[in-house]
């Protein structure tokens, strides 16, 4: 949808959209890890992007609550910064549209 009018919307719109989707997915994973913190034998899921961290975490067979909660806040902040960026981009477009009307 955004691609069709790429004259107005630069690629960063798509990038922001993807970034928001990724942070949402990460939040889902964290929510799942915390929900299953007491599940016997449960191995916490890690996101592909954090492969390096996953390698370090290998052999860790239980959910570390503090780590998950810290990741949760980090992700939420990332998400709201993406939303902010998107909204300021849109407000630029809105200004342009309003000026063109005159």
């Amino acid at each position: 949808m955004v691609n069709e009018i790429s004259g107005i919307f630069d690629p960063s719109f798509n990038q922001l959209e993807q970034a928001m989707q990724i942070t949402t997915m990460k939040q889902e994973i964290i929510a799942h890890n915390i929900a299953n913190a007491k599940t016997p034998g449960y191995e916490p899921l890690t996101f592909d992007e954090e492969l390096m961290m996953a390698v370090q975490k290998q052999g860790q067979k239980e959910v570390v609550l503090e780590e998950e909660l810290a990741d949760l806040s980090k992700n939420a902040l990332k998400y709201s910064s993406y939303v902010k960026m998107l909204s300021s981009k849109l407000s630029v477009l809105r200004t342009i549209a309003a000026q063109g009307k005159r």
Partner: peptide, 12 residues
């Protein structure tokens, strides 16, 4: 902890 997650996502 679960409620914290819930609230964070609610805020998002």
């Amino acid at each position: 902890a679960n409620i914290t997650v819930f609230n964070t996502i609610k805020k998002m």
